[in-house]
Lab assay of single mutants.
Amino acid sequence: MASQGTKRSYEQMETDGERQNATEIRASVGKMIGGIGRFYIQMCTELKLSDYEGRLIQNSLTIERMVLSAFDERRNKYLEEHPSAGKDPKKTGGPIYRRVNGKWMRELILYDKEEIRRIWRQANNGDDATAGLTHMMIWHSNLNDATYQRTRALVRTGMDPRMCSLMQGSTLPRRSGAAGAAVKGVGTMVMELVRMIKRGINDRNFWRGENGRKTRIAYERMCNILKGKFQTAAQKAMMDQVRESRNPGNAEFEDLTFLARSALILRGSVAHKSCLPACVYGPAVASGYDFEREGYSLVGIDPFRLLQNSQVYSLIRPNENPAHKSQLVWMACHSAAFEDLRVLSFIKGTKVLPRGKLSTRGVQIASNENMETMESSTLELRSRYWAIRTRSGGNTNQQRASAGQISIQPTFSVQRNLPFDRTTIMAAFNGNTEGRTSDMRTEIIRMMESARPEDVSFQGRGVFELSDEKAASPIVPSFDMSNEGSYFFGDNAEEYDN
């Protein structure tokens, strides 16, 4: 783990906690998980779902989305002020799938948001429990990260689609708070800032007046979040320049895209947490497990152990491969979309394939898809080993990566060399080191050039047997250095459309 220093740990961010010791953190995270579980059980009762239907990941996603929508204050306010045809701002819903006479049927349900809020609060001892809501947002974000390569979004903001390893959390809503900021990748933060800068260039009043003052505060806050992700002084200094700019424009845009590229080699610290679907927490609570009393951590053995003992089902389209669908969801559960496939294969105990080789589309089923041909199958979400999630980018030494994705962002704290394609990355730096950030740029390029592919990161860190909950005997895996390590390699994943 990167030293926490003055930073709060993510469990504290996750639970809005002030400084807590490890036991208190485990208890408050457990409380959050228990609340999600209780809410899910109650919703299944309301909807009269069978046990099997309640364990269907598509039903879980609909129920999670309903509660997130019920608590989305800004959108609710907007919907009330701008009524649109056929949208009731006070209601929320989605597809629920039921097994009827041996076939899967889709039923569109509609609930009062007020009623959903009441059920959620009741499951969370009367609190709004925003930490639990954020947790579900991060699960949705991790699922998107594993399912889609955001080529269009990258290109629109002047970045290269091969930089997708920097895009963790790119679909997280803005209201996801400190826990959300911690899991956002460098590219995601750059993209958010670039969008602001572009608006400022096109709209003279963007930075002016009372609204402009708020915009400015948001801009500086985002700059500080991004600065905190960088691990070298030169990158941090460049972020200070971007933040202090009187009138952010093209120079800042250039600096930010430069920094994003540099992060492929001088990786930023991005938190990883295993956020599971509500249909995993519900049955665990129903079986009598007391998360608050037992304590829970999002970055240790607990999620692995929970998945070892969970039964989750998914709808499967006619030509999809259930094992591939399982891999997709497994990666999402562990926030591992940008991790090295060699490491993932070792931990999972079966070969993890790149996205383009998977015969599976996303987990969600569109409303126009034919239910007649839908089957369902068990998702295999178990693992051979477990490993500690990392909050750091690993040290800054790398190795060759593949054509589709030119770097990785480690999820697990496991000893290995970190793949990246130096030639491709360095070719993108057209040696432009003039301007006010020239000395920093020169320094950053120097550090990137001296990074050695064969150097090892996370020295001495290994994986653990599932029986080793105290992480007492690390097993340090050895990897084939020459092997392909990137998930979005030469990829044809669908595009994420909101």
Rank of each mutant, 00 (worst) to 15 (best):
M481E: 07
E495N: 13
S9G: 10
R441N: 06
K229T: 07
S274Y: 07
C275W: 10
C164H: 04
H135Y: 07
D127Y: 15
A471C: 03
R293M: 13
A278I: 12
S478G: 00
I365W: 07
R441W: 11
R99A: 12
R174Q: 01
R195P: 05
L108R: 09
A179D: 03
V67G: 12
S297R: 14
I119S: 10
Y97F: 15
A260P: 06
S84M: 11
A332Q: 00
E81C: 02
D421E: 14
C275A: 10
G177E: 12
I425E: 08
V476Y: 00
P410S: 10
N498H: 02
A182S: 13
D72Q: 04
D491F: 08
D88T: 00
D127C: 02
R121N: 01
L68V: 10
L306W: 12
A332E: 10
T151F: 02
G300A: 11
I41E: 02
V312T: 15
D145L: 02
A27C: 00
Q415A: 14
T433M: 00
D88C: 14
L315C: 03
Q149K: 12
R461G: 11
S314M: 06
G435V: 10
N101K: 11
P83S: 14
E53Y: 03
G435I: 10
V183D: 09
N202F: 11
G404Y: 03
T23K: 00
S269P: 10
R446M: 11
I217Y: 13
K348A: 15
M196P: 03
L306N: 02
S3E: 00
Q42M: 12
D112F: 07
G93P: 03
R204P: 07
A278N: 05
A271T: 06
E210N: 11
F230L: 14
S359C: 11
E53I: 01
G462S: 01
W207H: 06
A123K: 01
D127Q: 13
A123I: 05
A123Y: 05
Q459T: 02
Y487S: 03
G249T: 00
T378Y: 08
R75F: 08
N492Q: 07
M137V: 09
N417F: 05
I217V: 12
R317V: 00
M191C: 02
K7C: 00
